[in-house]
Design a protein around this nucleic acid. Structure first.
Length: 278
DNA sequence: CAATAGCCCTGGTGGC
DNA sequence: TGCCACCAGGGCTATT
């Protein structure tokens, strides 16, 4: 989510008020609604009036009242490209803008998705319609977390990644939040104490805010809306640090699989019983 | 209903 | 050095 928010901000700088002349859909299967041809027609001649984000979805509001919705998934990149720049080798959808510049959707693994919808039809995107409250929003409170975690038998990391529970937390930030809160990723959510839930609530907000402040986390593919890398990878405590010393206690960071995702944690700070290196 | 495995893709890398 | 299984920041779908 920090990455998507940074992209949103960068695109807003360049894109607002710009008109889309025409659109090349180089890989039609990425357009999930309507079909590629209707998607092209919907964008043609429209001016971008808003650049919004909900969870990990980007929403470009057009002057027609339609929305272009983009989910970048793993390797998607939505960026503003000058007329003179070389074409991105992984360009999948290219919007030709008034003045000659481009808005390019590029995606190596082609797992991303694009939609063109009326604002009133956003419910068609299930993940968007069912999304839970976002970190840093007024609806995301410690009380909300307590309510949702009560009786929850699944692992706390799976809970954090479930976009219906909380909207916008990805694998990196889930690992970082659990480390900051001193909670073992595989513990059942319902087993967390009130104090731990309060700590986790604060930790989630903190890691997301820090990620945004650092311009996102770049390992390989991520770039912001103008092509720049983020810096948060330099400030991670556990993610991608297997075997390296914990920045808080010095113990070697471990990597396992939890909820089907690579999971990094400090075996000392994040003891199963709680109360690690706080 | 809730949790988990499989799947969608391509390419870099770690291990042998 | 060369090869190749494995893994990757996500989420939908089917299954249990």
């Amino acid at each position: 989510m920090p990455e998507v928010e940074i992209i949103r901000r960068g695109l807003a700088e360049r894109l607002l008020g710009k008109r889309i002349l025409q659109t090349e859909v180089l890989l039609p299967r990425l357009v999930k609604w309507p079909d590629a041809e209707a998607f092209r027609a919907m964008a043609a001649g429209r001016t971008v009036e808003a650049v919004a984000r909900k969870g990990k979805y980007l929403l470009l509001g057009l002057d027609s009242g339609d929305q272009i919705v983009v989910h970048l998934r793993m390797t998607g990149r939505l960026w503003y490209v000058a007329q003179s720049a070389p074409r991105d080798p992984y360009a999948r959808v290219v919007f030709h803008l008034e003045g000659g510049d481009f808005l390019v959707y590029a995606d190596l693994r082609t797992l991303g998705t694009l939609y063109g919808l009326k604002s009133a039809e956003l419910w068609r995107i299930a993940g968007l319609a069912a999304m839970g409250p976002e970190p840093l929003s007024p609806q995301f409170t410690a009380a909300y977390l307590k309510e949702k975690l009560a009786g929850h038998r699944g692992k706390i990391k799976a809970f954090l990644l479930d976009q219906k529970k909380i909207g916008g937390i990805g694998n990196i930030y889930a690992d970082e939040a659990l480390h900051l809160a001193g909670v073992h990723p595989a513990r059942p959510g319902g087993a967390l104490s009130a104090a731990e839930i309060e700590g986790l609530h604060a930790a989630v907000n903190r890691v997301i805010a820090d990620g945004i402040a650092d311009g996102g986390t770049t390992f390989r593919d991520y770039r912001d809306g103008l092509g720049k890398e983020g810096a948060h990878q330099e400030h991670l405590f556990v993610y991608a640090r297997r075997g390296l010393p914990c920045k808080r206690c010095g113990a070697a960071i471990e990597k396992t699989v939890v909820a089907g995702r690579g999971t990094h944690f400090c075996p000392v700070c994040q003891r199963w019983e709680g109360k690690g290196c706080m």
